[in-house]
């Protein structure tokens, strides 16, 4: 492939510089975008998708009451090497997936206006749900992790902290939107992963797996909603001692 040069002009377009120079031909065998793009695809399944499963499942402990929920948070925050687990399985993958995802979005030319077909809408929706989930997560991490009572050292305050946040209707709405966006993005992302990596190649196999992925998204939305309902309908728990005394939060 060494003889192929990325600067080789398209035959017949050697004329003066044009306002619209056209799309460059394939840079056969050159560059690293293949690796980065496939890594983006993979990172969405593992570890981010795996983390999403864990996160929805762990939070669903709320449906078993405040004590069960806080016990689960204590378990998770007490995992060995929790700093590195978070760094390598959550922070870095999500930062990469989001960053490269916005880069992909920026370079695509959404055209659902002229071509309003299902696949094309899903293409566009995948970009919007990704963005919504990203901004939701930014706020979610800030408010749950870096603001207010520190859950890594105060796991007993976990249930109260979520309940406290749910006193704001806007927060409840944002959680709901975030859950839907993340669930859809993951479900369709799973389908895209299978289609692009060639796990399901035939039309009917791809369609059937599409139904499976739709179910995955629906299950996620259901579990997420049930968890929210548990927080909203459980009796209000008392704030942990250090907060009720006003020692940390005035």
């Amino acid at each position: 492939m060494a003889s192929v040069s990325s600067t080789a002009p398209v035959a017949g377009s050697k004329a003066s510089a044009r306002a619209h120079s056209g799309v460059a031909p394939l840079r056969a065998g050159q560059g690293h975008s293949f690796f980065w793009r496939r890594l983006h695809s993979l990172s969405g399944i593992f570890p981010i998708g795996a983390f999403l499963v864990e996160h929805f499942f762990s939070n669903a402990f709320a449906t078993n009451g405040a004590a069960a929920y806080n016990e689960n948070v204590r378990f998770l925050t007490g995992l060995p090497f929790v700093f590195f687990l978070e760094l390598f399985f959550i922070w870095i993958p999500i930062a990469y997936h989001a960053g490269y995802g916005f880069y992909i979005w920026y370079r695509g030319e959404t055209n659902v206006g002229d071509y309003p077909w299902t696949g094309n809408w899903l293409y566009t929706t995948q970009r919007w749900t990704g963005a919504i989930a990203f901004f939701y997560m930014g706020w979610h991490v800030w408010s749950m992790r870096f603001n207010g009572v520190h859950l890594l050292t105060n796991s007993a305050a976990a249930f109260w902290k979520v309940q406290n946040e749910f006193h704001h209707p806007w927060a409840v709405a944002f959680y709901f939107v975030g859950i839907i966006a993340a669930s859809w993005h993951f479900g369709y992302g799973l389908w895209l992963f299978a289609a692009k990596w060639g796990f399901f190649t035939g039309e009917s196999a791809r369609r059937k797996f599409g139904v499976v992925c739709l179910l995955v998204a629906v299950v996620f939305i259901t579990v997420g909603t049930a968890t929210m309902v548990a927080f909203l309908t459980s009796p209000q728990v008392a704030p942990p001692a250090e907060i009720s005394t006003g020692a940390q939060i005035p």
Binding site: S6, R27, A28, Q30, S33, F34, R37, W117, Y123, L192
Partner: peptide, 25 residues
């Protein structure tokens, strides 16, 4: 082998976003 590795170059198969307009038109 040569064809597949050509498609791994920049602008290759990985740029497909699976919008499926191609198959429609």
């Amino acid at each position: 082998r040569e064809r597949l590795s050509a498609l791994m170059g920049d602008g290759g198969i990985h740029e497909c976003g699976y919008a499926q307009n191609c198959v429609e038109v």
